[in-house]
Write a protein that binds this DNA or RNA. Structure first.
Lengths: 216, 216
DNA sequence: GTGGACACGTGAACC
DNA sequence: TGGTTCACGTGTCCA
């Protein structure tokens, strides 16, 4: 009993399968059958099937052994988990950090901060308050942001002020939405506006505020 | 023989483990030992360990059965694969599709296309050719894009043309890089520029081209 | 011929 | 209690 195929002649079916057979002989020889013989057989086949299915889901399989299949599955799961974590991090960085990153970069770049900026805090009442913010982001470079009411000709007025102050636009973004206007821009200082102190920045800010407030 | 522990007295160690033991008795009784008995035992323990390790890597385990462990691992792997695909798609959408998406949206929005736009093809010589493109994206709305040499005052000139043509800026983006300037903007038609035909669009385009080409 | 891997049938433990 | 799962020792294949 036990020990599987002790009473069968050596038969070699292709690639070692179904070593069973001659069950009747065994029964005849010993006239004994375990009650859970078939159930056990089903159980084995089930586990075998599951293992094959697992193998089919793992891209790289070093060995066909059962242990190897499970091992490779483990390493594959760990790789997948790592990848998911990496991708999630990347996605989070891309979709929510722009503002924070901007802040951080700004914090590193800005040498003389003209006005404290908290973009996150400010987002709450971004479209409500009329404001002009200037930051010196280089020897002869400024970054500015303006939020104001949406009025026709307000952008032209902005350009006039820029021209008058001798500020050349490096890049600019203007967005109008819900009756409000947002302008972000980096500008190059063409003529001696910045002579070391920040008084001229204050002046520029006042000019811009005045221009934004005045009706066309 | 075979069939495992046929000759041991029933012993119940906690939670079904180490049913073995009394090996010496077996040896004495039968005076026979399979040469690969211990090796087989190690193999079993190894597989068992791997399965436990696999189980520890799968968050939800419905059953402690071997088959269940493998099954849950399979479903978990499929979930992870799905998640990786989803995240990768999302990431790709975010980081490279903006242009394509823009194109698609434009294709849907644009009713009368004034000039064929192939942003991808154009990216190759984006900063080389001087060009003005206009698209009618609404009853009284235009979308325009200008690439030109970087010259001081060119943006002011652009604004002058906009004002002259009676076009109000809805949103605008200006970028200067490597001696070139890119302007993208949506504008609202204030006065009767567009009277049904697109001749006035052509005229606007010519105005803009002329303004971009002329030296300040 | 040696060791690794497998399927087998079985007794026992757990529900 | 049956039904199910498990570990066991063995025979056999294959590298």
């Amino acid at each position: 009993m036990g020990g599987g195929n002790r009473f069968q002649e050596p038969l070699r079916i292709s690639r070692r399968r179904q070593v069973r057979k001659e069950k009747e002989e065994v029964e005849v020889n010993e006239s004994f059958k375990s009650p859970n013989l078939e159930a056990e057989r089903r159980r084995r086949e089930k586990l075998h099937g599951r293992l094959m299915a697992l193998r089919s889901h793992v891209p790289i399989v070093t060995n066909m052994t059962k242990a190897s299949i499970v091992e490779d599955a483990i390493t594959y799961i760990r790789e997948l988990q790592k990848e998911v974590v990496n991708l999630t991090e990347k996605l989070h960085e891309m979709e929510e950090v722009p503002l924070e990153l901007h802040e951080q970069q700004m914090d590193q770049i800005i040498k003389h901060e003209h006005e404290t900026i908290d973009l996150k805090e400010e987002m709450k009442n971004l479209w409500i308050e009329e404001s002009v913010q200037l930051c010196k982001i280089g020897e002869r470079k400024l970054w500015l942001k303006i939020t104001t009411e949406k009025k026709p000709g307000i952008f032209t007025k902005f350009m006039e002020v820029m021209r008058f102050m001798g500020l050349q636009i490096i890049d600019i973004t203007l967005t109008t939405s819900f009756g409000a206007t947002l302008i972000c821009s980096s500008v190059q200082i063409l003529q001696g506006l910045c002579d070391g102190d920040s008084v001229d920045l204050e002046q520029t800010k006042e000019f811009l505020l005045e221009a934004m407030r005045s009706n066309p």
